[in-house]
Design a protein around this nucleic acid. Structure first.
Lengths: 340, 340
DNA sequence: ATTAGCACTCATATTTAACGAGTGCTAATC
DNA sequence: GATTAGCACTCGTTAAATATGAGTGCTAAT
């Protein structure tokens, strides 16, 4: 168990290190206004903290830096998670409302905002359209053999794809098929759409069955497409300002990893948490993100479950500020009405 | 005017430097199999080439490197532009055909391919939808007050946007408006759509004129939206392997510039050229791309004019290989049939 | 017109020395 | 018993000193 003073010292070390990115020594601390102990006393406590694995030294004659365990302790015990500053939340909300309407735009805005607020890189994952329900499906002929399949969900999300028919399609047949599908499938979650279309095909007992099947298979293939959940990266260039990313050896893996959209999406979707969660350093298990910490949270927009947003910074990130900003932002998003 | 030998030497210097990224000295050259002159002779010619501004030395005791003027000479006189290797073109075509169908996918594929082939970064701009003609416009109601405006072009390009009505819209009125717009505007180039809708509004002489106008204004605002020409970046990480981008000072401006999608789009669209064009070093006039050269070309897909593709590498890029690969690729694209 | 020879230049790498922030321990002090 | 002053020691960082060598320009010989 930590003594009162050790706690103070641990906190001071972390706060200092977060700001300066330099190992902090006992003398520096004892000269701080709020720590009125001699450097020797601090040194003794530091030795204890080090024994407990909370801090470490890069080398013999350097100051101490927090260990991952130390950050974990700091985040778990020393960071208040749910302090909502009403005025600030309102301010953020105003910022977002300005662009409003289109949810995709709004989410970008939110990611950029969070990025500006914290100077870290943010990743926002839009609504997982798999949960959306079909509002309407359509097939618009372009010419004799090509058409565009459109899938619109109740949330206003649109997916489309150009398809090519093996043989020309009669307009009235197309129309009939589309009407048929709309009648049967309205309200179906997108994730199940492909399967449901398959079901409907098997029920068909119409004339020209072959041609219908053919068309519907094309539509089905569209429905099963790699669900293109919208992903947005904000403040990528912020990373350049972090002292720990001033060398190519650290910068390169980060940038290469962050640019791989698909991997990034999978990763964000794999995070199980609903509320704000902090992953420190190697905890995230990703080699390229060894020296990074991530604050993630699911968010809701206008009350509806929506997506995931993440903030990525160096392990030495400002957890308190980060967590608070994240909290404020998702609260602001929660309160943002879509229509208006 | 250059003597035969000077030409040989200039070419040798550039070829060498492109490969090694190191200044090349007279001794190195004289030991090459194909240059059988003494180092002193070569030094004399080098001095002449330097006087002409074709090469320069980083400092007194270093070898020579090509100047931008030198590269220009090299590209204009020493690089053959239109050698199409049928077998290679076919191979590329096969590569592309594998994914075929969706033009957007195909273009990504092409950019990635060019990037793999050359180890430079590529940027591909999809069809400029402003030239596409309207195939169909639609407004799908989501609920009482929201709807999705869909604009589909004859090329299968789709744009959409969620709009919010000030007051609830009667379904039959929506339907009527849409029918009206489709009747009048089919075939209109997207670039003129906004203007044309405005015209149609002014012609309206119907009952409930106000509500119609209201709806049409929403649709109009969609049509005039920031035309989201599809942009794709390929092989961004290739830049990390270029020796001239091993320092943050050079790397950072490049990455920051390349990540700014909108600027990038504008820039690509501003390039006036139809056929392969090489811009060397500061010629491109972009500060962040001072030390880069760009090979650009418009391309056609399946015969139809389509978009622009660019290849960005260090000024010391392999122009011959780059130009040739670019030529092969756009030829392969030209021959690629969309339907099938 | 070429080429061998040579003195000179200058970026880069290597070595050496000085510096100083910070530590751990011991003994004095409160 | 807890705190602090004092001091020897460690070790990364910086700066100066030195060595290296690739490459040049010029001159004189071929």
């Amino acid at each position: 168990m930590l003594t009162e003073r050790q706690l103070l010292i641990l906190r001071a070390i972390i706060d200092d290190y977060i700001q300066t990115a330099q190992p902090v020594g006992s003398r520096t601390l004892s000269k701080r206004g709020d720590l009125s102990f001699s450097s020797a006393t601090i040194r003794n406590d530091m030795a204890d903290l080090e024994d407990m694995g909370l801090i470490e030294k890069p080398h013999t004659s350097a100051g101490r830096i927090p260990s991952e365990v130390g950050y974990r302790y700091y985040v778990d015990h020393l960071v208040e998670k749910k302090i909502i500053d009403e005025r600030e939340t309102y301010r953020l909300g105003e910022h977002l409302r300005a662009s409003a309407q289109e949810s995709a735009v709004l989410i970008r805005q939110a990611a950029d905002l969070l990025s500006d607020l914290t100077n870290y890189t943010t990743v926002a994952l839009g609504p997982n359209s798999q949960m959306n329900r079909l509002a309407r499906i359509d097939l618009m002929p372009l010419d004799e053999r090509r058409g565009v399949v459109l899938i619109v969900t109740d949330q206003g999300h649109v997916e489309h794809r150009t398809v090519v028919f093996e043989s020309p399609m009669a307009p009235d047949m197309v129309e009939e098929t589309i009407r048929f599908l709309n009648d049967r499938l309205k309200g179906t979650p997108l994730g199940q759409l492909k399967f449901r279309i398959g079901e409907e095909i098997s029920k068909l007992q119409l004339a020209h069955q072959e041609q219908y099947e053919n068309m519907m298979q094309l539509i089905q293939s569209t429905a099963g497409l790699h669900h293109p959940t919208s992903l947005y990266l904000g403040g990528k260039k912020n990373i350049f300002n972090q002292p720990e990313f001033q060398s190519l050896d650290t910068l390169r893996p980060f940038l290469e990893w962050i640019d791989e959209q698909e991997r990034l999406t999978d990763w964000l979707e794999s995070l199980p948490n609903r509320e704000i969660y902090v992953s420190i350093g190697s905890e995230n298990g990703i080699v390229a993100l060894q020296n990074c910490s991530v604050i993630t949270s699911d968010y809701t927009l206008d009350g509806k479950t929506f997506g995931t947003i993440a903030m990525i910074g160096p392990t030495r990130m400002d957890y308190r500020h980060g967590v608070q900003m994240m909290g404020q932002l998702i609260e602001a998003l929660r309160r943002t009405k879509l229509e208006e």
